[in-house]
């Protein structure tokens, strides 16, 4: 019966992480889009660009550095706020797996602690491989 309670609370924690991860990233993306439309700034953070090609992503490379992101957020570039929201969205499932790892550890379910740790390792490995 304690395992039933444990699983129920795990599900609730995961549910809340998913809900708030999506909500906050959605808010960031909407705020970024609003900034871009109000300011007419659809470029990759470099100011005015031709409208539709820029929207379709045809204007070349896009900076992916943390420096660009933080300066863009500070100067209220729409694209930077959207990118922050997208990054949070992509990391939401990682937080979900982390929550499962913690929950299985708390409830001393060693088999499923090992299983969820394996999944977390694989996901983090893929993030590292993507950055390489």
């Amino acid at each position: 019966m304690s395992s039933n309670n444990g699983e129920l609370s795990t599900e609730l924690v995961i549910s809340q992480i998913l809900r708030w991860g999506v909500r906050v990233s959605l808010a960031l993306i909407l705020f970024g889009s609003l900034l871009a439309f109000v300011n007419g700034d659809y470029g990759a953070g470099w100011g005015e660009a031709d409208l539709l090609p820029a929207l379709r992503g045809e204007n070349g490379g896009f900076p992916r550095s943390l420096g660009w992101l933080f300066s863009g957020l500070a100067s209220f570039k729409g694209a930077a706020w959207i990118v922050a929201g997208l990054a949070l969205l992509i990391s939401t499932p990682v937080m979900r797996v982390t929550a499962s790892v913690v929950a299985f550890a708390i409830h001393k379910d060693r088999t499923f602690l090992l299983i969820s740790l394996s999944v977390l390792t694989l996901v983090l490995l893929s993030f590292a491989l993507g950055g390489a």
Binding site: R56, G57, V123, F127
Partner: peptide, 19 residues
Amino acid sequence: ATGAAVYFMRGDVKPFIAA
């Protein structure tokens, strides 16, 4: 998320399409 991270790091996730 595993696949998206790769595309994101490569710079293929265009903000005004993905948004």
